[in-house]
Design a protein around this nucleic acid. Sequence first.
DNA 1: TATTGTTATACTCTATAACTATA
DNA 2: TATAGTTATAGAGTATAACAATA
Lengths: 162, 162
Amino acid sequence: MQHSRQDRDETIGHPLLKAAGLADRLGFQLRMAQAAVWSDLVAALQPFGLRPSHYSALLIVRATPGCRQQDIGEALGIQRPNVVAMIDGMERRGILKREVNPSDRRSYALSLTQEGQVLLEQADAAHRAHEARFASQLDDGAAAALIPVLKQIAAAIGAPAA
Amino acid sequence: MQHSRQDRDETIGHPLLKAAGLADRLGFQLRMAQAAVWSDLVAALQPFGLRPSHYSALLIVRATPGCRQQDIGEALGIQRPNVVAMIDGMERRGILKREVNPSDRRSYALSLTQEGQVLLEQADAAHRAHEARFASQLDDGAAAALIPVLKQIAAAIGAPAA
DNA sequence: TATTGTTATACTCTATAACTATA
DNA sequence: TATAGTTATAGAGTATAACAATA
């Protein structure tokens, strides 16, 4: 039955968006929802001096210590020159370190420092709180049901990396 | 039953994203899906020399002829100085026109030209094809079911304008 | 005094070309 | 020759401050 949220839908958005027919288009609502989640994530990570891309990169380094800058770029769809500046900043802060890769001296082996591990755990907590902020508001199972549909959409079109 | 698309989920995305635990997070998949849809929309509108924001602005002008630049900015969340450049370009192309607003000479009354109406109808067709490209790939009713959930997400957090 | 449009400007994000050092 | 990292740079998109005309 839960129709209270359904009713509230009608109160969201600028009146001109409805007049223009944008308010009920899937692509548009996808953009609105993503923008809302994104700005909340930016705010959640800001106390740690991290942008969403930094946080994602740190998750990758923690999960696969010894990885290269290029690995991060490929996974997140960030150009190589832009990875450099990102790693530079975090290395300067002592969050992660570049070490020589004995098997291929062209690349660095990335890993978190002690400080980086602590910081990332704090950021994890902020990220969990961020997710709870919207996931808990959804009807039971809606969040879990949503993910496969979102994957279908990305797959239907052929996603650029993120 | 339809489990074929569910199975295909496992094949999507960079392996490091799974390792980092990003692949099954709602916010991340929301971003991936939105990025895919967005880049498809950019490509769909590109033959008409329009960006998504231009298209949205033209929809508003068509739906509410005589509206002000400020109305567009408020509806789409675009700052006033940035609306100016956007309208400049479309006026120069003869897509829309600025006319004096007799009741308030500080603002312009915006409206589509004949050429603008024709162009927008062509862009509409391209936009419909764009929507069909992903909506038709979804399981029956998934697209319709998705929109209220997306609105819930935006509402849960407090959406910035789009 | 407040608002609309405007100019100038700056900051971020993203993208490309060319260099170096290794392979 | 091809790849990893780097540098410099250019282009979007977006943000603020200050000004003119009008309310």
